[in-house]
């Protein structure tokens, strides 16, 4: 037996050690930022905090949560996530149901599929998109963050593959009983595709929560920034010129502990949905990558 040889035993010990180190490296940054956010501002500012908080207190969170700018950004972030997920899922589910049909009875399917797939291969890029949003007068509206990304073709293909796995007999029986396509989708396909719906909704939510660049591009007024864009401007760019508000209030936000608290609050929703996400995405990726 190979795993009893001394050579393999030595390898095994090193392997476990190495993988443990790699795992630690994946969560270390988050632990560090969490420790900073719960530390006193003096040790944090002089870079004394490692992986455990020094002078434990929750002042940074209190300051963050009492900041009206942060509130507004949080609200816009939640708003775009909810609206974006609802609209996106509606469009994706309807379209995925239609293109999941066999090309035999629904010949236009091929044209539609290529019509969508081409947008994955080629795009106009940011400048024409920016001009379009300007010309449509969508600048500074929530629709600029929701509509351009509503039809996610990757998710649509994923959903289509789930629908294709539904036994053909169920659809035939439903259509035979006089239900139309809308009824069949609603009463037959959706109830048995709930895990798929949950997975793709979670993917969409994470996507919207993490999106920041469209906010920077399409919002000229910082008050319309979703949380990710707000964090990008305040913490990464440290650009307070754009956010011309009370200097003292912004000073509060730029303290190291408060920054860490904001970063952590921004990550929290992802950490909360991650266990559910992880349960499904492995299956989803394999389903999406390997056709039938």
């Amino acid at each position: 037996m190979y795993h009893k040889t001394p050579g393999y035993k030595t390898f095994s010990v090193f392997n476990y050690l190495l993988l443990t180190l790699i795992c630690i490296s994946c969560i270390l940054p988050l632990i560090h930022i969490l420790a900073v956010s719960f530390s006193g501002s003096a040790p944090a500012n002089s870079n004394l905090v490692g992986l455990l908080p020094i002078d434990f207190n929750t002042e940074a969170y209190a300051k963050t949560l009492h900041n009206s700018n942060f509130h507004r950004a949080l609200f816009v972030g939640v708003q775009r996530t909810v609206l974006g997920t609802v609209i996106g899922m509606l469009l994706i589910v309807l379209a995925a149901y239609a293109i999941s049909k066999d090309a035999h009875g629904f010949r236009s399917r091929t044209i539609y599929t290529w019509f969508f797939l081409f947008t994955m291969l080629f795009s106009g890029g940011i400048v024409p998109s920016y001009m379009l949003i300007r010309n449509l007068d969508l600048m500074n509206t929530i629709w600029a963050l929701v509509l351009p990304v509503a039809v996610n073709v990757f998710n649509m293909v994923l959903m289509m593959n789930f629908f294709r796995a539904v036994p053909r007999e169920l659809e035939e029986a439903s259509l035979m009983d006089g239900a139309g396509h809308f009824r069949t989708l609603w009463s037959v396909y959706l109830p048995i595709s709930l895990p798929a719906l949950a997975t793709i909704s979670l993917f969409t939510m994470v996507f919207h929560w993490n999106s920041w660049f469209d906010g920077l591009l399409y919002m000229t007024d910082y008050r319309n920034y979703p949380l990710s864009t707000f964090l990008q401007t305040v913490i990464v760019q440290q650009d307070f010129n754009q956010i011309n508000v009370d200097v003292n209030e912004m000073k509060n936000l730029s303290q190291r502990t408060v920054k860490a608290a904001q970063i952590f609050i921004g990550t929290l929703p992802i950490l909360l949905v991650y266990p559910f996400l992880q349960k499904y995405f492995v299956k989803g990726i394999i389903l999406g990558a390997v056709k039938e």
């Binding site: 509606l90 469009l91 994706i92 309807l94 379209a95 149901y97 239609a98 293109i99 049909k101 009875g105 629904f106 236009s108 539609y112 019509f115 969508f116 947008t119 080629f122 795009s123 106009g124 890029g125 400048v127 024409p128 998109s129 001009m131 379009l132 509509l147 351009p148 509503a150 039809v151 649509m156 139309g180 396509h181 809308f182 989708l185």
Partner: peptide, 29 residues
Amino acid sequence: LTWPLHLMLLPAVLVTILFAYVPMGGLAM
């Protein structure tokens, strides 16, 4: 038989034309 399927695709097609294909035309810039 298939008009409901076309109807289901309509919203996604309109959004895609407007936000993906129109910007491709904008490459004329």
